[in-house]
């Protein structure tokens, strides 16, 4: 920041606040993250608990769960993504306007979790869409979700307007929706966002 801190504080005393546009932009985005309202399994119950009275996600400005992807900034993938559900998850993600973020909540959403050897379980939602924050746990406590939210806010406040992907014409904003195949989803993963773990 180019402003001299002393000058800044002097100006502040006069009621003049000096800050980069970027700060204001990021601050307003991170302070009102609207998650899309959908839950996939048991983790969703913890997400609901995080939003309800005791844990009160409203303290972080993320209490307005939207029933439409068009109004949401944040997708909390809370629960087991079955292969039958995966195309719908990707489609919802595609329908969200930029800038958008994804939190993969729980062992299931990040890797398949306890159902990893299941024939109908997607082994991690990051096979199809880019994930910003992974929360381990089965299920993660509401505190863990709040921590993830704070981590995401930190990440947002560090973004630079001239680098963010949604102003980049070449960055993908739509991700291919997998098709139902005869034995598995086709393709089984999106190579642009995911590659098999190295040994």
């Amino acid at each position: 920041m180019a402003v001299d801190p002393n000058l800044k504080s002097e100006l502040q005393k006069q009621g003049i606040f000096v800050m980069p546009v970027e700060f204001l932009y990021n601050w307003s985005r991170k302070s009102s993250l609207w998650p899309i309202q959908f839950g996939l399994a048991c983790c969703a119950i913890e997400m609901i608990a995080a939003a309800a009275a005791r844990h009160d996600m409203a303290r972080f400005g993320a209490e307005v769960f939207r029933a439409s992807p068009r109004q949401a900034d944040l997708m909390i993938v809370s629960g087991t993504v079955t292969k039958k559900m995966a195309p719908q998850v990707v489609r919802l993600y595609n329908q969200m306007p930029e800038p958008k973020y994804v939190i993969a909540m729980g062992a299931c959403a990040i890797s398949g979790g306890p159902f990893k050897d299941g024939y109908n379980v997607l082994k991690g939602v990051d096979r199809y869409i880019p994930v910003d924050i992974h929360i381990p746990g089965c299920p993660p406590r509401p505190e863990a979700l709040l921590h993830a939210l704070m981590t995401l806010q930190e990440k947002i406040s560090k973004q630079h307007l001239n680098e963010v992907s949604w102003y980049d014409k070449n960055a993908p904003s739509e991700f291919p929706v997998p098709q139902y195949g005869a034995h598995d989803l086709e393709p089984p993963a999106n190579p642009k966002v995911w590659e098999p773990p190295k040994k």
Partner: peptide, 11 residues
Amino acid sequence: TVPASALEAKK
């Protein structure tokens, strides 16, 4: 590891 075939579309 995940076999490379995991990334290929199977018909």
